[in-house]
Design a protein around this nucleic acid. Structure first.
Lengths: 218, 218
DNA sequence: TGCAACTGTGCAGAGACTGCAAGATTTTTG
DNA sequence: CAAAAATCTTGCAGTCTCTGCACAGTTGCA
């Protein structure tokens, strides 16, 4: 979202700017070191040193070592609320899936804009499946909030109805599969295109083989 | 699956039987303690003490503290391979989703058979979303292997085609949503029924609101 | 300028998890 | 059946993640 990239640096004030810089330095350091040595051969201390801050500061920015790799932008909590709001405000005539598509388009564009960074990130995620769950579905994106928002949009109960949780999970799966393919292709096609392909497959009821493939096939 | 519950205890030998007992003692201890105090207020040492083994032994059985709550049965690795085999051996005329349904039916039955235990487990998972991902989708079920198996069954490439990873993720989401509802209902309906409802919704292309709800509605 | 609000850092400490080697048990073998 | 092989349990030492706390340095603002 805009708050980091689109806002002119000067509008932020020195303090906020420094914070962004430190966050960035840490994620970049994490990305590089982990990319080279693997997650288990890099300590939080290594990353801190590489970024030029104390280990204690590292944990002021990230709750876990993994987060340094996964969280590309700060303010992830507010981000979840913004997303929820955007989902509710999407044109009422849109079905839930279309509304979600609208909601995520903005965020997904950032991936294409920083291709190298995200390719590095997903390369790491690919080698550590434990991270994959966390990045799309996990609490990073505010699972609970998102399910409730979906429920409200379609007028259902987040707990007593199957649909809201099902849709939320399915959307996460679609994004995960799309992004995995995006990375496998080296980021040649825009992410949004692949996500749309996933959503189309979903809307069509997951038709069997060749019809879904976005190219000819093997 | 059969290997633990269905095999007469005497056919296992003393050593194997003791191992099963210890595993069971640990998971039950973990389930109870964590259920009472919450995951963060229970240490691996607590669980070990409760189960009557040394802390070191705890980590001989589980790689992480969380696994003690999540892994209901041992041999999880072989289990993944068995599932893969079952998926390939399912009647060829079945579509992928039906084949998966057949594959998981057997495992899912165990949930209904041990309702209380699984309700306790899911109650914990519900409070710790980080666990949710791991239990269905994560490496616990051999993500990579499963995607490749799906790919083989439909004659596609696990990496270059969208479908296999998409189907795998979507199935995981369907199971997760179904089980969440199952737990919310206190296990009144058989899990298989709810999973079937999820799969039906998927096959129908995630039709919007009221049609999916498995009851009337709110 | 001077105070209030942050941010960075060191320190101490709890807890997760691992490798190693000794001791106890079970299974296998001859 | 007894000795050897295979396994399992455990204690120990040690690394690493992550947290609370207190203090020092900066930045924002009146």
């Amino acid at each position: 979202m805009p708050s980091t990239d689109h806002v002119p640096a000067q509008a932020l004030g020195l303090r906020a700017r420094k914070k962004l810089e430190t966050h960035r330095a840490l994620t970049m350091a994490a990305l590089r070191l982990v990319g080279e040595r693997g997650l288990e051969n890099v300590t939080a201390e290594d990353i801190s040193a590489e970024a030029g801050v104390s280990p204690r500061t590292f944990f002021n920015y990230f709750a876990t070592k993994e987060d340094a790799v996964l969280i590309a932008y700060p303010e992830s909590e507010q981000r979840a609320e913004q997303s929820a709001r955007r989902l509710l405000e999407a044109p009422p005539e849109l079905g839930p899936m279309e509304a979600v598509l609208v909601m995520i388009t903005e965020d997904v564009a950032l991936i294409d804009e920083n291709r190298e960074e995200w390719l590095a990130r997903f390369a790491i995620v690919d080698e550590h499946p434990a991270l994959a769950a966390r990045i799309v579905t996990g609490q990073l994106s505010g699972e609970r909030l998102m399910i409730e928002t979906i429920a409200r949009r379609v007028g259902m109960d987040a707990d007593a109805d199957l649909y809201p949780a099902l849709l939320h999970g399915v959307i996460g799966a679609a994004m995960k599969a799309a992004i995995k393919l995006w990375a496998h292709e080296g980021g040649r096609r825009p992410v949004a295109e692949l996500i749309r392909a996933s959503f189309d497959a979903l809307a069509a009821g997951l038709p069997v083989p060749a019809a879904t493939t976005t190219r000819g096939n093997s």
